[in-house]
Design a protein around this nucleic acid. Structure first.
Length: 423
RNA sequence: GGAGAAAUGGCAGAGCGGUCGAAUGCGGCGGUCUUGAAAACCGUUGUCCGUUUACGCGGACCGGGGGUUCGAAUCCCUCUUUCUCCGCCA
């Protein structure tokens, strides 16, 4: 959520910046400004009424004590009037505030000035291409065929027991999952992140806090009976730890990591995009989150980017990093870098990580603040990144490392997997 | 799932319906003392909104929401959470 002051300072700038993200917010911004003016006017009148009521109540108390009941009765009348007025005004103010909030949450985050212009992924800016030599033999297969051949992932069984997009991992397939999770967590904790195991269901406030609601309603599984949302990423619980919290500046940066299952409805996805592991309703991911001083958030974004890159280096996967253009940026992000690995048999780049700086957008929603060097409270900046999402890593590992005698497991994983080949 | 108790400032813990934004202790911060530190003593110590160039002033907040009253941290209703006992259970 953008801060009201930012919007008020220069509404036209907001509207123009959001055009970069392909949002037309002209009407919305004007509504917000009008509502804010109304809010302040209403509050002024209400506060005056309440102030008078307060002083009258005090006077009545004094009159009663000195036995002047008649005079008190006169004041009581005035007080009753005031009560009626302030009740109406209070209700109005409540309505206005609610409307204002409803409008404010519809406004996306502003893109950072360094975000490249553009409307879709074609316009994203390539910032690093790291190729590794991959030579596949003649009978090389896409990962969904490999999964069947070596009996390590069963998509059909998943469909039977749950539905499409819920695979079973089996034998060394399950072992590889576990190895990757442990590898990612070990790397994260070595890099100074505190490991968490979080709830997989969150309440509505949390879903709002990180910005999944109201923007991505419909992408999350919703348990209506208890009003829980299944987390689409550990970012949600991991960041909401600090909802309504005021940290000390010495506590920053906060670096947290969590492995979790992630659940996404992925409504409206079809075709080759969803083949095999390319897109699932349930998948595994290690997520890293940082809460930092606003002065450093872009340095931290780079730090996190380097960290994610180091994981892909260690796994010896060909990857590229792209900086998302305005049109491809998510609702909540100010800047995002996507990581894609090359999956050699399907000859596709697959997104495996997204590292974003949300600046104060999430913090403002969550009231996540810190006490700065001058003792003033200030919104913190939040960042997060996948480190990493498993399914597409697995897809690329299987496809790129297949040889005639089986699939080689990257060396860094051996101590976690206990095997070095799937055959 | 059933029965009971509770929820107050960073923490602990008071609070007859009327100067209670809230005693007291601890912690934090500033100072005196000290070569330095500790102890002792003095002072200070919440968040948000509105208004103001500023000092300040006004308002809201004692788990959330609603009600009674001229007036609620204090009374009533409701929700949530925590604790104790019983039941069930990986």
């Amino acid at each position: 959520m953008l801060q009201l002051n930012t919007i008020k300072e220069d509404p036209q700038r907001i509207i123009e910046l959001l055009r970069i993200k392909n949002y037309d917010t002209d009407a919305l911004v004007n509504e917000i400004i009008a509502l804010d003016i109304k809010r302040r006017e209403t509050q002024k009148v209400l506060d005056n009424g309440l102030a008078e009521a307060n002083s009258i109540a005090k006077e009545i108390g004094i009159l009663f004590k000195s036995g002047k009941g008649k005079e008190a009765a006169v004041l009581k009348e005035r007080s009753a009037e005031l009560k009626k007025e302030t009740q109406v005004l209070g209700a109005d103010l409540g309505d206005i505030k609610q409307k204002l909030d409803e409008k404010l949450v519809l406004l996306p985050n502003l893109p950072h000035p360094d975000v490249p212009p553009g409307t879709n992924e074609e316009d994203n800016e390539l910032i690093l291409l790291k190729d590794f030599e991959i030579t596949l033999h003649d009978e090389a297969l896409p990962h969904w065929e490999l999964a069947k051949k070596y009996d390590i992932i069963d998509f059909d069984l998943g469909s039977k027991v749950s539905g499409a997009g819920f695979p079973f991992y089996k034998g060394k397939g399950a072992g590889l999952q576990r190895a990757l999770i442990n590898f990612f967590l070990k790397e994260a904790t070595d890099a100074g992140y505190t490991e968490y195991q979080t709830p997989l269901f969150v309440n509505e406030d949390s879903a709002y806090g990180t910005g999944q609601l109201p923007d991505k309603d419909g992408q999350m599984y919703h348990i209506t009976e208890d009003n829980f949302y299944l987390i689409p990423t550990a970012e949600v619980p991991l960041t909401n730890i600090y909802r309504d919290v005021i940290l000390n500046h010495q506590d920053l940066p906060v670096k947290n990591a969590a492995y979790s299952n992630c659940f996404r409805r992925e409504a409206g996805s079809y075709g080759k995009d969803v083949r095999g592991l390319n897109r699932l309703h349930q998948f595994d991911k290690v997520e890293i989150v940082q809460i930092v001083h606003p002065d450093h958030s872009y340095e931290v974004l780079e730090e996190m980017r380097d960290y994610v890159a180091s994981l892909l280096e260690k796994l010896k996967l060909p990857y590229r990093i792209v900086k998302l253009c305005g049109g491809d940026l998510s609702f909540t992000a100010a800047m995002t870098c996507d990581f894609e690995v090359f999956s050699a048999a399907q000859k596709r780049w697959l997104e495996v990580s997204s590292v974003s700086n949300f600046e104060a957008f999430q913090s403002n929603r969550m009231k996540l603040r810190f006490r700065n060097e001058n003792g003033k409270t200030q919104l913190a900046h939040t960042l997060n990144g996948s480190a990493l999402a498993l399914p597409r890593i697995v897809a690329a590992l299987l496809e790129n490392n297949q040889q005639t005698d089986g699939i080689r497991i990257p060396e860094v994983l051996h101590k976690y997997s206990g095997f070095d080949i799937i055959s």
